[in-house]
Amino acid sequence: MKNLFGLLLLIVRRDLLLAMRRRADVLTTLIFFVMVVSLFPLGVGPETDMLRKMAPGVLWVAALLASMLSLGRLFSADYLDGTLEQMLLAPQSLSVLVLGKMASHWMVSGLPLVLMTPVLGLQFDMSVQAIGVLMLGLLLGTPILSMIGAIGAALTLGLRGGGVLLSLLVLPLCIPVLIFGTGAVQAVTSGLSISSHLSLLGALLVLAVAFTPWVTAQALRISME
């Protein structure tokens, strides 16, 4: 047990260290997110009523796209320099190793989006309460995006046009997350309870933690053949 945790920690620390040495990659995802969100008012007009209504959807879709963008790198760098081969040959649980990669991917590309949300929420004139719920939803939902996305990233490893293909595979699978995440914000703005939305997101997160690492590990073995 301690050994598995040690492996998880090793991978997370390694990936965070690599991300620190390659800060530009982290920033691009965040800037992309901010840019997409900021383009919407320019596209639909500045009426605050409409923007307030649209905000949760816009932020969630932008978060989805931003995480798709960063998923391409999840395994490809390790694939190209041969590290992934060594990971597959490590005499340790590949699922735990994959979970570590998912966790660090989220810390690098999901967490910054959550932290950026209040600023963008204010741009859309959202209430403080709505912003809070939106952040909570993103906090529960973005790890799921990283985990489902990892399956797609593993399946499309080394393929030409992998990035677009990855989105095609993963986006439909992420729809429930989008629905529950935006639903929570709409519930709170219309004075309803948010607990069912958030507990469903929580349930999805638990399911994702339980199954996606193993599925991703299988996908990696298939792709490395």
Binding site: I151, L169, P172, L173, P176, L200, F211, A219
Partner: peptide
């Protein structure tokens, strides 16, 4: 593998929609 993941997801997607 994708089809299996998809078919596990279909009920969740259907319910959420």
């Amino acid at each position: 593998l994708l089809a299996i993941v998809g078919s596990v997801n279909v009920p969740i997607i259907y319910f959420s929609v």
